[in-house]
Amino acid sequence: MTALGFLYPGHSAEDDYPRIEQLLGSDIRLPLVHTDIGEDAHREDALRRMGSAARLAAGVEELRLSGAEAVVWACTSGSFVYGRQGAQDQVRALARAAGLPASSTSFAFAHAVREIGARRVAIAATYPDDVAALFAAFLKDLGVEVVAVRASGIMTAAEVATWGEPEILGLARDGDHPDADTVLLPDTALHTASHLPALEQELGKPVLTANQVTVWEALRLAARRVNEPALGTLFTKEPIVQV
Rank of each mutant, 00 (worst) to 15 (best):
A223P: 00
G175Q: 06
P206Q: 10
L184K: 07
R173A: 08
S194I: 00
V241E: 14
L171R: 06
G175M: 07
T209K: 09
L171I: 10
I240D: 05
N227F: 12
P186L: 09
Q201V: 09
Q212W: 10
V241T: 14
T233D: 03
R224A: 13
R224S: 06
L171C: 07
D187R: 07
T236P: 04
T188Y: 03
N227G: 04
A189E: 01
D179H: 10
E238A: 15
L185Q: 01
H191M: 06
L234K: 00
A198G: 08
E200V: 07
H177P: 01
S194P: 00
T233H: 15
T214I: 06
V207H: 03
V215S: 05
L231G: 06
N227W: 10
F235Y: 15
T209P: 08
V226L: 06
L169D: 06
A193E: 02
P186E: 07
Q242C: 04
T182W: 00
T236K: 01
E202Q: 15
A189V: 01
N211Y: 11
T192F: 06
P229W: 13
A218W: 06
V241S: 13
P229Y: 13
T192K: 08
V207S: 04
T182F: 00
D174L: 13
L219Q: 00
V215T: 05
